[in-house]
């Protein structure tokens, strides 16, 4: 990997890689540190990287592994229970405390649903929906076939759809009960 390709290929990925790390370690400062580590490693060994055919896929795998390593290390330090929660992001001021609460619950619901999916489906879902990768890119990153990517994404989305429709029925039921 030459100096040029470091700047044109790798650096533009940093926001996405950061989000990827953040999705795993759930801590902004740590995610940034992990990303910096990765970029430094890539930089210092740029001459050995000629053989890498798909740097983007490689970076995703690398940052995922590094983030998972960090999680393991954190668990080993027995800090797992005090892992920092995802930071509260600032919402629009006009949002009332109630709607903020509702929003928080909704996000928690999706996170929960996502966590219940098999690992492969979760990863495909994240890469497609959050990183906005093409099916081919996802296939290369996860080293699986494009067909399997589509199937996994299809199952993940369907699961979401079912869950959300179910939730709606439940809330409808509650509304009806309340009115009766």
């Amino acid at each position: 990997m030459k100096v040029d390709s470091f700047h044109t290929l790798i650096l533009p990925l940093r926001e996405k890689l950061f989000r990827h790390a953040l999705g795993i370690v759930k801590d902004r400062a740590e995610a940034e540190d992990i990303l910096q580590d990765l970029l430094l490693k890539l930089w210092s060994r740029r001459e050995e990287w000629e053989g890498i055919s798909n740097p983007e896929a490689y970076c995703y795998r690398a940052i995922r592994n590094m983030s998972l390593d960090w999680l393991t290390a954190a668990a080993n330090r027995k800090n797992a229970q005090s892992l920092p929660e995802l930071e509260e992001r600032s919402f629009i001021d006009s949002e009332s405390p109630h709607s903020r609460l509702v929003r928080k619950e909704q996000l928690a619901l999706i996170r929960q649903c996502l966590a219940q999916l098999p690992d492969k489906q979760q990863r495909v879902f994240r890469l497609r929906e959050i990183e906005e990768m093409s099916y081919r890119q996802i296939a290369e990153t996860l080293e699986i076939s494009e067909e399997l990517v589509k199937v996994s994404l299809f199952r993940a989305r369907r699961k979401m759809q079912e869950l959300l429709l179910e939730q709606e029925q439940i809330s409808d039921q509650m509304m009806r009960n309340a009115s009766e």
Binding site: R103, Q106, L107, L109, I110, R111, E129, I130, M160, Q161, L164, L165, Q167, E168
Partner: peptide, 9 residues
């Protein structure tokens, strides 16, 4: 009912 999903993304 699908808002939470897209809000999450």
């Amino acid at each position: 009912c699908f808002v939470p999903l897209f809000a999450y993304l």
